[in-house]
Amino acid sequence: MILQYLTGEFEHEVNNTRKLLQAVPEKDLGYKPSAVSWTMGELAQHIATIYYWYVGTLTKDVYDLATDHLERGDTNDIQATLALFENNVEKARAALATLTEEKLLENWTMKAGEKVLLGPMPRGIVSRGFLFNHIYHHRGELIVYLRATGNKVPGLYGPTYEQSGKM
Results as ranks from 00 to 15, higher is better:
Asp68Lys: 10
Pro33Gln: 13
Tyr51Met: 08
His69Ala: 12
Lys27Gln: 15
Asp28Gly: 02
Trp38Ala: 12
Ile50Asn: 07
Gly41Thr: 08
Glu42Gly: 01
Glu42Lys: 09
Asp28Gln: 13
Tyr31Thr: 06
Pro33Met: 09
His69Tyr: 00
Gln45Thr: 09
Trp38Thr: 02
Leu29Phe: 05
Ala44Pro: 04
Val36Thr: 08
Thr17Ala: 14
Ile50Thr: 11
Arg72Trp: 00
Thr49Gly: 12
Gln45Ala: 06
Pro25Ser: 05
Arg72Asp: 11
Ala44Ser: 13
Ala35Phe: 02
Tyr31Phe: 14
Met40Asn: 08
Ala48Met: 05
Leu29Tyr: 05
Leu58Trp: 07
Tyr63Cys: 00
Ile47His: 03
Glu42Ala: 02
Ala48Arg: 04
Ala35Arg: 08
Tyr52Asn: 13
Asp68Gly: 00
Thr57Lys: 04
Thr59His: 06
Lys19Asp: 12
Gly41Cys: 03
Tyr54Asn: 05
Lys32Leu: 04
Tyr51Ala: 03
Leu65Cys: 10
Tyr31Cys: 07
Glu71Gln: 13
Ala48Lys: 00
Pro25Ala: 04
Leu21Thr: 07
Gln45Tyr: 05
Lys32Trp: 10
Ile47Asn: 00
Ala66Lys: 11
Thr57Tyr: 06
His69Lys: 14
Lys60Gly: 07
Glu26Cys: 02
Tyr51Gly: 01
Thr59Gly: 09
Trp53Pro: 10
Lys27Gly: 09
Thr57Ser: 03
Ser34Thr: 10
Lys60Glu: 14
Leu70Lys: 08
Leu65Phe: 10
Arg72Glu: 15
Lys19Ile: 05
Leu58Phe: 15
Val62Ala: 04
Ala44Lys: 10
Gly56Ala: 13
Glu71Arg: 12
Asn16Asp: 09
Glu42Tyr: 02
Leu43Ala: 04
Ala48Pro: 06
Met40Arg: 00
Lys19His: 10
Glu26Ser: 08
Leu43His: 00
Asp28Met: 07
Ala35Lys: 09
Val55Lys: 15
Gly56His: 09
Asn16Val: 01
Asn16Arg: 12
Gln22Tyr: 04
Thr49Glu: 09
Glu26Ala: 13
Thr39Gly: 04
Ser37Gly: 08
Val36Gln: 15
Pro25Glu: 03
Val55Ile: 10
Lys27Arg: 14
Lys27Cys: 04
